[in-house]
Design a binder for these strands. Structure first.
Lengths: 189, 189
DNA sequence: CCAAGACTTGACCGAACGGTCTACTAGCCT
DNA sequence: AGGCTAGTAGACCGTTCGGTCAAGTCTTGG
């Protein structure tokens, strides 16, 4: 399991790159060079070329993020603490990577217009998976309206990613943590 | 005032494009073609080339957004209503443009890494201007901790932009409106 | 043992990229 | 008028873009 297949290396490398620079900022040749895979192999595994590769890379990155959410939440006693752990973890990752690794989906989502519609399905499916996972966790903790709360949490977190990356200051994420209680405990109507 | 100068047309066109597709997604030749300005003029007005043009376009787009915030808030009676008006307006713009026009700063911010550091200053300055404007409005409405609240509102709004654009559903922004009271205007400590 | 697919390899392609350069025009000052 | 500067105009440059392809090698089943 030390050696990864060409396809895996392509996907992992592309995921890292779109994570930082998005779809347009990631070039095929850069993926090839950084992964050490020749061009022909790419078009063998991904007949649709760049679009196919990036779709799979998005899916891959989304899975990594979800895993991190679950790891961060594991063993937490209250729903507030679970959500806080995610935010703290993401703030730390952002800082340690010098604000390179935020949310892989958001980076691609914002630059996506009509021409790149093929990516929307992956984005939607990934966000739904995240929402499902968070809602499941919250429901387990007896939180009412778990799905809505999960969506609201994601919105807060995504906003935190944007502000933190733009202003190079992870406190824009950490500052959200004390706001989680009113978010999780307060019911609207 | 019917005819705009070449420089103005370049900036306005570039702003529109980065708004939708970000820095890497916007090509010089596309700006040239859409604005009808020849190449030589661009490099006369912007000796630094693409980077200079995009910096100015970012600044321009940021100003347009700020104007929209202020127009939306104008005449509102309570701070909740003012912030809600901004969100409703942005949700409507997003829908009417088929999810093309979200936040121009966020799109660029997320794809920015070390190589494109020259953009960070503009992003930081623009976000601070927005925060200032919102904090000023909130302070005027006797809200305590106006600056923090303004930052929190922006975080919420940016998150809404990301989710709404990714999932092609402006309700991810509208859903935030009833949360403004408990989340933004309630004091914690 | 060999035929057939799966996969690798890199040369090659046309188009688009961002950027430079020279020539030209338009307005302004003396 | 002449000279000067700001701005226009687009041909041209080298590089990189995403993508194709023919020729290889490896792997597997019969």
């Amino acid at each position: 399991m030390v050696e990864k297949s060409s396809k895996d290396r392509l996907v992992a490398t592309a995921a890292k790159l779109i994570w930082q620079k998005g779809y347009f900022g990631t070039g095929i040749s850069e993926v090839l060079q950084k992964s050490g895979v020749p061009k022909g192999s790419l078009y063998h595994h991904f007949p649709d070329g760049k679009m196919g590769l990036i779709r799979e890379a998005l899916h891959h990155a989304s899975g990594i993020m979800l895993q991190q959410y679950e790891t961060a939440m594991r063993g937490t006693k209250t729903p507030e603490k679970g959500l806080a752990a995610i935010m703290e973890h993401m703030a730390a990752v952002l800082e340690e990577s010098e604000f390179r690794y935020g949310c892989p989906l958001a980076t691609v989502a914002l630059e996506t217009t009509g021409e790149t519609n093929a990516l929307i399905q992956v984005l939607q499916a990934s966000y739904e998976m995240w929402e499902d996972a968070l809602a499941g966790y919250l429901a387990l903790k007896q939180v009412r309206g778990a799905r809505d709360k999960a969506g609201l949490f994601l919105t807060l977190l995504e906003g935190g990613f944007v502000l933190a990356k733009a202003r190079r200051d992870a406190s824009f994420i950490r500052r959200l943590i004390p706001r989680l209680s009113p978010l999780v405990l307060t019911d609207i109507d």
